[in-house]
Design a binder for these strands. Sequence first.
DNA 1: AGATATTTGTTCGTATGTATT
DNA 2: TAATACATACGAACAAATATC
Lengths: 266, 266
Amino acid sequence: MKPPVTIQSIDDARKRIPSRGRNRPQAVAETIKEWIIEHGLTPGDRLPQEHQLIADLGVSKGTVREALKVLETQDLVRTRTGPGGGAFITEVSADHATALLANHFFFKDISIADIYEMRIALEPQLVADLAPYIADGQIEELRARMSAYTAPPASIEEEKEQRVAELEFHEALAGFSENPLLGFTCAFLVRLLKELTVCKKIYEQPNPELRERGVSYQVQLIEALRARDADTARAVLQAHMRTAQRIMLAQEAQVTKGFLSISKKT
Amino acid sequence: MKPPVTIQSIDDARKRIPSRGRNRPQAVAETIKEWIIEHGLTPGDRLPQEHQLIADLGVSKGTVREALKVLETQDLVRTRTGPGGGAFITEVSADHATALLANHFFFKDISIADIYEMRIALEPQLVADLAPYIADGQIEELRARMSAYTAPPASIEEEKEQRVAELEFHEALAGFSENPLLGFTCAFLVRLLKELTVCKKIYEQPNPELRERGVSYQVQLIEALRARDADTARAVLQAHMRTAQRIMLAQEAQVTKGFLSISKKT
DNA sequence: AGATATTTGTTCGTATGTATT
DNA sequence: TAATACATACGAACAAATATC
């Protein structure tokens, strides 16, 4: 285990912390963050202990705790109790980043059209990139996921489960991308489709066409990936997304029409 | 001003908070968040006061403060002192969401190729959407921004300033989008280009070709937007992005070659 | 402009929970 | 099991900010 970091150039840092005013914890958090960067700390490294931070930064325990809570909320550190415990640098997980980003879009009302415009622009590109280097094991995983919804659903519950499974097919696809930005964005779009209330309502309605066409396209996609054929993969995904967009928009219109009377928007 | 929220069903909430164990502040934060959603609080609404939260939730002041700090870090609330003060719901700003998202990509090394792959897929679509309804005032803003780099730079400093101004042209463009997802993503990509260290090094080198071609494309874009011509706007942006990608990748190769010896990656 | 009341922000002492040895 | 080292939680007192009169 690496030794705890010894903090240098404390005086410079202390000057940046307001003497008694507002937002002291945030300022302390920023200071600690700068140290992390300056010292090139990487995930797994430990920060100085609480009492040491208190002494070095010249702030109280409560303030240090709030500052660490700020960093913890950003998923930059995690703390452990006990001997050898303390705050440890962590790599910000995609899940955490997704949750924080979703907050931003909570009050803006995202439409299904918005999401599909993005998917149409990105997912064909994603699979085209993937085709040349995708591993056989990854293709196998896609096949396995697909098998969860090749048979028609027997109930409303199964209907919903299949929709989610279909979305997770695309989430897995996104996870295979070598472009972190592209992969994250596509996965985020799928997560929005999984969680938006409008979508949840749609998933409660039977929709044989979407399922059948979806399966058909995905069979073609797997075929194209197996053949390492980027152009075909791209074309298949483009058609897939366009079809899904058309059907989802039609269903959105139906659902919102049925619920107009109890719309919460004033 | 709306009256402060009175908290109901406290007992249910209290049960979810661990009695003495770890992560009490997070649990309290989650509880408050659920209240916000359950009561349909919107930006501007006030949360109960600190002392009331302490009483209602049965936790200490420090714990409540840490919980509020968690929400504050997520940009969900902001607090004010004084009479009538307290914690107020806020709309999570794009800036804040951007900063939190950037944390996730900090340890993953994003390449210029990754960014431009996304820009090529998204920005042409963005301007095509924009063309039919963009306001004359917005076109005027673009023109004004462009004027900051129509003349060749006289120094390295001016070189960098012009690069940033050019990127902010695209940031403004993204801000005009009616698709929040598309707008946010494009703006985020531009912000990455502004802040990545590799890019900063590139901007220190003179690059007349990128500037001249950029201005030329942007003149064409403004022309197309003025004519409300979506197809031309899309085509121009596509060419613009492809050219920029080619030049940036070439410069990236040069810069990294020059700095290979002091690369920090082990 | 100044005094006052209200509410958050900061500190410190103390006690408790938890994991390592 | 006991001792130790660390974070976690609580409460009281005080400081700072701001709205109102």
